[in-house]
Computed example of a mutant assay.
Amino acid sequence: MATLNTYLNFNGNTEEVFNFYKSVFGGEFIVVQRFADAPGCEGMKLEDKEKIMHIALPIGGNILMGTDITDPMPPSTFGTGISLSVDAESEDDAKKLFESLSAGGKVTMALDKMFWGALFGMATDKFGIQWMVNYDYNK
């Protein structure tokens, strides 16, 4: 079976974003690569060389990955068509994750008990990424 991981693009603040996610989910980065470390990037603008070319943070059985968009690539435009869904291991875990992810962002659906037997909420974090936090009481 294939594994599906999430890859996020940011306009120069990937390191800040991933340090935030590391503070929420814990763990250690598998890799942090900067453009300065890559062959063929010698001619890049000096300010772009220290940006993140690739970063990876394991979360559960998946890996959250990301990069900085650099010139001449078009800037990333955050849309509303994608949300990241995280399944918590306990009710307390769900509450902590939701509180941490929504801090400085916007709660779009308060974390609450739902008719399908779960604690569920939605928020957009301070970086514009939409999250769904779920804890299934029936598992």
Score class of each variant (00 low, 15 high):
38 A>G: 07
62 N>H: 14
51 K>C: 09
67 T>Y: 03
63 I>D: 04
34 R>T: 03
50 E>F: 00
38 A>W: 03
38 A>K: 13
55 I>M: 09
45 K>Q: 14
62 N>V: 03
70 T>K: 06
67 T>G: 12
64 L>Q: 09
52 I>K: 01
68 D>F: 00
34 R>P: 00
52 I>E: 05
61 G>D: 15
55 I>E: 08
65 M>Q: 12
49 K>N: 07
52 I>G: 05
49 K>S: 11
68 D>T: 02
63 I>V: 13
61 G>T: 13
50 E>N: 14
70 T>V: 15
66 G>R: 06
52 I>D: 00
48 D>M: 03
66 G>L: 01
41 C>D: 12
36 A>C: 05
34 R>S: 06
41 C>H: 07
69 I>S: 12
62 N>E: 13
43 G>E: 13
65 M>W: 04
56 A>N: 07
49 K>Q: 14
63 I>C: 09
63 I>T: 14
60 G>Y: 04
71 D>V: 12
51 K>Y: 02
40 G>Y: 00
70 T>M: 13
60 G>H: 08
60 G>V: 04
46 L>I: 09
67 T>E: 11
41 C>P: 00
49 K>H: 11
48 D>A: 11
34 R>M: 01
66 G>I: 01
37 D>A: 10
51 K>D: 09
36 A>V: 01
50 E>P: 03
35 F>E: 00
40 G>H: 01
39 P>M: 10
59 I>H: 07
51 K>L: 07
59 I>M: 10
49 K>F: 09
37 D>N: 12
62 N>I: 05
56 A>H: 01
67 T>A: 14
56 A>V: 04
34 R>L: 05
47 E>C: 02
65 M>Y: 06
66 G>A: 08
56 A>R: 10
46 L>R: 09
46 L>T: 14
